[in-house]
């Protein structure tokens, strides 16, 4: 009795692995797009120029307001209707996920930059740095450590949201589960297996982001959370925002 679920999964493991690969690829591409958008729009949002800020807040408000699924359907199904072009479904999915998560990321970037103590900016003025140098050398490296934990959550969100690509026919992990469920009639096993694999992918991503966080905190002279080893990486970091040189 107990061997049946295991058999089901082992038999179909290569198929699931392939689906997981697609999910992972879409996640990585979507994250890359979201990251670039978040950085550019986030920095725009911190400028004093009202046009730059207007563009930034239009983008973030709009794309945070629309569900990724609606955006993806729009690109996949209505662009062919209004233009002679057809977007590749995977491309449409990456675009929708990237635009959506990028809007959340931009807010994180903006808030993290603004959270760098004002005194740091004043010190760069006293050293007569240009805006570009100030951002690159002082502000962004400090904001980066603060962005990372939230970025980590956003990557997980994007990975989870990528399941919607199955609805427009991309053979990701969810689609594999759906097809295998239909073929075998064991839908619960089919989706259960997919859930476990999603969980594993998420844990891999979480460990990756934790490693980045440790590095960023070390560069700011903050000690990494107590205890070492892989298990420690899975625990949320306990380092607070205790940057030196900040105003109280």
């Amino acid at each position: 009795m107990g061997s049946i679920p295991v058999d089901f999964f082992i038999d179909r493991f290569p198929l699931y692995l392939e689906g997981a690969g697609t999910t992972f690829t879409i996640t990585v591409l979507g994250t890359a797009l979201a990251f670039v958008l978040a950085m550019v729009i986030g920095v725009l949002g911190t400028l004093r120029n009202p046009v730059a800020r207007g563009v930034a807040s239009f983008y973030t408000e709009t794309f945070r307001g629309i569900a990724a699924l609606v955006l993806m359907f729009w690109m996949a199904f209505s662009i062919p209707q209004i233009t002679p072009y057809e977007l590749d479904v995977t491309f449409a999915a990456v675009l929708a996920l990237g635009l959506n998560v990028g809007a959340y990321g931009a807010e994180v970037v903006r808030a993290s930059i603004n959270a760098v103590p004002k005194a740091q900016t004043e010190a760069t003025i006293a050293l007569n740095m240009t805006w570009a140098r100030r951002m690159r050398l002082v502000i962004l490296p400090q904001a980066w450590a603060q962005m990372l934990p939230t970025f980590g959550n956003l990557v997980i969100e994007l990975m989870k949201a990528s399941a919607i690509v199955s609805l427009i026919g991309v053979t990701d992990l969810t689609q594999v589960a759906r097809l295998q469920g239909q073929a075998s009639g064991q839908t619960i096993l089919a989706f259960g297996s997919a859930l476990v694999m999603y969980f594993v992918i998420a844990q891999v991503l979480i460990v990756g982001v934790r490693l980045l966080e440790r590095r960023a905190n070390r560069r700011l002279g903050r000690t990494p959370p107590a205890g070492g080893g892989l298990l420690a990486l899975l625990r949320p970091p306990t380092v607070g925002a205790t940057a030196t040189g900040g105003a109280r």
């Binding site: 969810t174 469920g181 999603y198 844990q203």
Partner: peptide
């Protein structure tokens, strides 16, 4: 934690069939 790190869509389908 498991629920939080896996897709809502798959959870919906899973429970729908269950």
């Amino acid at each position: 934690e498991f629920i939080r790190t896996t897709p809502l869509l798959v959870q919906l389908l899973f429970v729908f069939f269950l």
